[in-house]
Each structure stands twice: as C-alpha cells, then as structure tokens.
Amino acid sequence: MKNTIVILLLATIGYYLGTIFFGIGFGDAHFANGVKDTYLALTTSELKVANTVTSIVVNFRGFDTLGEVTVLFLAATALGGILYKKRHAVGERTVLFPASSIVKSGAKLIFPAIVLLGAYVFIHGHLSPGGGFQGGTIIATGFLLMLLAYDNFSVNHNVLSFIESFAGIFFVAFGLAGLLISGTFLENFMPVGTMNDLFSGGVIPIIYILVGFKVAAELTGVIYTVLHEKD
C-alpha cells in the first residue's frame, strides 16, 4: 500500500520534472537576458580574477559563502552536541589492530605532501579550479589518513577551535573592513593587480585562504569527534 502511494507520487514528480527539464534544452543560450555575461565581463575587467566561479563564490555572492561557512561551523557544533556524553573520554580509541608499518610510514611520508596539495589548491583558488573548501577538505583528509594509521595520533582541540574561530572572525572582519573602507560589506578594497598573477584579485585570495583554514579545522574536528565515538 505504502509502496504504491510512493510510486504514484514519484511518477508524478518525475513526470513534471521531465516535462520541465526536457523543455529547457541543453547547451543553448536559454538565459540570454540573465546575469551570466555580466559576471564574466566584470570578472576580467574589474576583479582580474581568472576563475569566475571563485569570483562569484567569494565576491559577487560572498554572502552565501559566509552562510556556507556558518553552516559547516554549525554542523561541527551540532555534531559535538548530539554525540555529547557526560563521561566523554577523549583520546580513548580502542584499536584492535594497529595499522601495518607500511601504511604507517607511507602515511608519514605522504602527509606533508597532502597538506601541501591542500595549501596549493586554496592558494591558487583564483587561478585554477579549487579554492578554500576543496583545499580545506584535502587537508582534513590528510589528517584522516594520520588518524587511521596511528592510533595514538591526536589533534589538539583547543588549537583547532582557535584556528576555526580566528579564520571566521577574520572573514567577518574583512567584510566589515569593506563596509568601513568602501561602503559595502565584503567589498574588494585592495588593489586587484594583473590577471593570472598569483598576487591578484585583492581580498579574494585572502578570504579563500581563510575559508581554507576554517574548513580544514572544522572538518578535522568533525572527523576527530566521529572517530572517537564509541559506546
């Protein structure tokens, strides 16, 4: 009975989605009167940022990114709250088998390279694909590797929340600085330089680096919390 209802519901949704999206067309200029061309033009002429996606994420729609960072922050907070136990013993991971020495030494060798890759991705966020979120995620994955390989590897929670808080505060502070200096929140108040240089785009790379630090700290905290969850 329930299955029938669900299938009928899904068929309806599918039918409407089908009619809608097959009508839109694929790869046509169906949004000719939209804002796409403005974005592309402004990115090259005003912001001098090579990656338009970055310029949208950090500058044109930077407010969304602030919200997104907040969502991650809240998720980390919520995770800690939901999994909270009175006798929360941190640092107590019962591991049946230690990882083999090959995985251990491999992880040790590759970890700096992974962190460097993450740093590369978020430093070059305005030139190549990637940016703060991706870079931060990569660094957090590196920490995940270390946590998997070493059962006594631990991250200092205070340091993590320090990084997290300071990156967030600086993000908002850059926004407020834009408000004070140029008149609007998150406005790009620094010189933009020339296209495709590393030092270009004004505050955009700086904000993306801050986002990278924040995301890395938050996701590491999430992984750490979850990995120590054992009852």
């Binding site: 949004f31 804002v35 796409k36 061309d37 974005y39 592309l40 033009a41 990115t43 090259t44 090579a50 990656n51 338009t52 996606v53 949208i56 994420v57 729609r61 969304d64 990114t65 997104e68 969502v71 991650l72 030139l127 190549s128 694909p129 979120f133 296209m195 495709n196």
Partner: peptide, 30 residues
Amino acid sequence: APIFSPGYEDKADIMVDPIPQALVLTAIVI
C-alpha cells in the same frame, strides 16, 4: 570552463555558465 587561464582570456563567449557551478559548490558543502 569559466576560467580565464592563459590562452583563454578572450574566450568569454564560449564559457559555460559559472553561476550554477557556484551554487552547486555551496549546495555540496551544505
């Protein structure tokens, strides 16, 4: 891709729409 890397500085007319990509970026993280 909507990235003006060297050699693609004046190819804005053949670039795909960057806005859905930015939205998806946000949506994936959320």
